[in-house]
Design a protein around this nucleic acid. Structure first.
Lengths: 143, 143
DNA sequence: CTGTGTGCAAACTCTTTGCATAAGT
DNA sequence: ACTTATGCAAAGAGTTTGCACACAG
C-alpha cells in the first residue's frame, strides 16, 4: 500500500471512530468504498458485491449493519425512492435526484441551484429534517 | 342503498371501465374506498384491511393487482418514500408531502404553492414525468 | 480480558406468481 | 361461451435477527 492509500485509511479510521464505531476491518473497508470517491447511491447488495469484488471479505448482514450505523451517525442518508430496495446516499447535504422510471437508476441533478420555494411551516412539535426532490424521468416516446 | 350511494357506484363503474378494466365487484368496491373521500395515501395492506372492515370480500393479491392496474391507468400514483412498503396516492397531480421519520406517516403539504425553481433540463431522450417533493420531518428534541 | 462486531442461517415482511375456479360481457 | 379476474398458497426479493465465534481496546 502506498503512502496515499495508507493516509486515506487513517482518515477513514478516524471518521469511523468519530462516528462512535470501532474501526474494524470491515467498517473501514466499507467506508473506503463509500467515501473515497465522490457522491454515490448504493443499495446494500450493490455495496456488498462491490466489496467482494474488491477482495474485502464481509457478510451481507454486516453491510446492512454498517450502512445503518453510518446513517445514524450522519455519514449517509437514505434516499426516498419507490421500490423495494433502500438506497443510501453518501452526500448528506440537501441536493436532489433524477430517478429513471423502470430501470431503478438514480443520479444527482447536476449542480444547478434547484430551490424549493414557499415551504410551509412544519406542524407543531416537528422540524424539517431535510427536503428531498425527486424528478422522475421517463423515456420520451419515439413516435 | 340510497340514491346517492347508487349514483356513486355508477360513477365509479364508469371510471373503472374507462380505465380499460372490467368493473368487477372487487374493483368497484376498492375504487369506492380509494376515490370516494379526498386524497388518500395507502399501502396495499391498509386498503385490504379497510376493505375487510367494510365487509368487502377481496383477497390481498387482488388488492395488489387492482392498485397496479389503477396506477397504470393513471388513477393513482406511487409515492416515493423510503421503506419497504409501497404507498399509493389518490391525488395524481403534482403536489407534495410531509413524511414523518420513524412512524411511516405521510400527509399532504397543505395548500401552499410549493414550487421548485430552476429545474434542470432532463438528459437527452428523457422527459420529466413528475416532480416529487418530500419534506422529511423529525420530532423536535424536547431538550 | 471484556465487550463489541461479525457471519451464518433462519425468520420476517412485503410483493409477485401460477393455476384452478368464478364472474363479467 | 369466451375471456378476463379472483383467490389461494407458494415462491421470491430485500431486510432483519439470534446466537456462537472472533476481534479491538
Amino acid at each position: 500500500m502506498d503512502l496515499e492509500a495508507r493516509t486515506e485509511v487513517v482518515t477513514l479510521e478516524k471518521r469511523v471512530r468519530e462516528a462512535g464505531l470501532r474501526p474494524t476491518r470491515q467498517r473501514v473497508a466499507l467506508a473506503q468504498l463509500l467515501f473515497a470517491r465522490g457522491d454515490r447511491h448504493l443499495s446494500a447488495e450493490e455495496l456488498h458485491e462491490e466489496a467482494l469484488t474488491a477482495g474485502v471479505r464481509v457478510s451481507l448482514a454486516t453491510v446492512y449493519n454498517s450502512l445503518h450505523q453510518f446513517t445514524e451517525a450522519g455519514l449517509l442518508r437514505i434516499l426516498a425512492v419507490e421500490g423495494t430496495r433502500t438506497y443510501f446516499d453518501t452526500n448528506t447535504s440537501d441536493h436532489h435526484h433524477f430517478y429513471v422510471e423502470g430501470d431503478n437508476r438514480i443520479f444527482d441533478i447536476p449542480h444547478v441551484p434547484v430551490t424549493v420555494v414557499n415551504l410551509p411551516e412544519p406542524p407543531e412539535g416537528m422540524e424539517i429534517a431535510n427536503v428531498d426532490v425527486v424528478v422522475r424521468l421517463r423515456r420520451k416516446r419515439t413516435v
